[in-house]
Design a protein around this nucleic acid. Sequence first.
DNA 1: TATTTTAAAGATAAATATTATCCTTTGATA
DNA 2: TATCAAAGGATAATATTTATCTTTAAAATA
Lengths: 133, 133
Amino acid sequence: MINYTDELRKHNLKATPQRLAISDALYINGHMSIEVLYELMLKKFNSISLATIYKNINLMMENSFIQEVKIPNAKSVYELTKTAHSHLVCDSCGEVEDITIDLDAIIDEAKQISSFKIDKASLVLSGVCKNCQ
Amino acid sequence: MINYTDELRKHNLKATPQRLAISDALYINGHMSIEVLYELMLKKFNSISLATIYKNINLMMENSFIQEVKIPNAKSVYELTKTAHSHLVCDSCGEVEDITIDLDAIIDEAKQISSFKIDKASLVLSGVCKNCQ
DNA sequence: TATTTTAAAGATAAATATTATCCTTTGATA
DNA sequence: TATCAAAGGATAATATTTATCTTTAAAATA
């Protein structure tokens, strides 16, 4: 188990017990929706407020400690910020997995055929996971 | 100007004036949020209900007549369904543009390194558009 | 370590966004 | 043109997210 105290502070976030628990939950589960995260946090802090979840998620995003992953036909999930990567989503069970694919060639191609200055690529691949096949 | 009557019917959607107007608006504007679409439709039908917008957007999505585009840090926009393509988003003005890039190589790579059965790829590139540079 | 300061937590109200319901109207088919 | 299922409008009900206010606690500092 990692202690996220320093990591939070590096992102200008006070290391409160609630934030440490959110960090742990995201570390363990990888990707969580607001709803699921709230349910889980309620087990640890029986009086945690939903507003606390929202405030922390928003602040953690502003400070780049976590990131939102928008998924086709599903609610957003959140993950700890790590090196750039893409996502795999199971259309059957909803499971979200990280996958690292080099998108440089794609980005270069896009730069050539468009007039945009491109600096980020977000790729979500949908399909059926091993378990659901 | 295209007449979407037949196109709607092909997707099992009755061709009502409201739906024809929504189709036209999406054809002309390319990508629109619920909010902007509603504002625009109000100019044409001064008593159109917001519920009508939602009901139609949802039904049109179910029937694959339109598609939702989820964008990082912004509200979803909707577009008429066309052949598979990716999107470019301007972080400055929010403009969304279509871009066609072959993602087959990427999908093949993902298939090899994961245990998922992959059937769809959704790519959103972010940057700064010509106008905002 | 005690004190002070500032920010976060909790409770809850308010604001937004989305969906459901019910009645009226209308598009599509015969 | 008559019929009927479906769509529209009005609006209530839910769901989601944000704001406000008071209390509590993290972290800086004396």
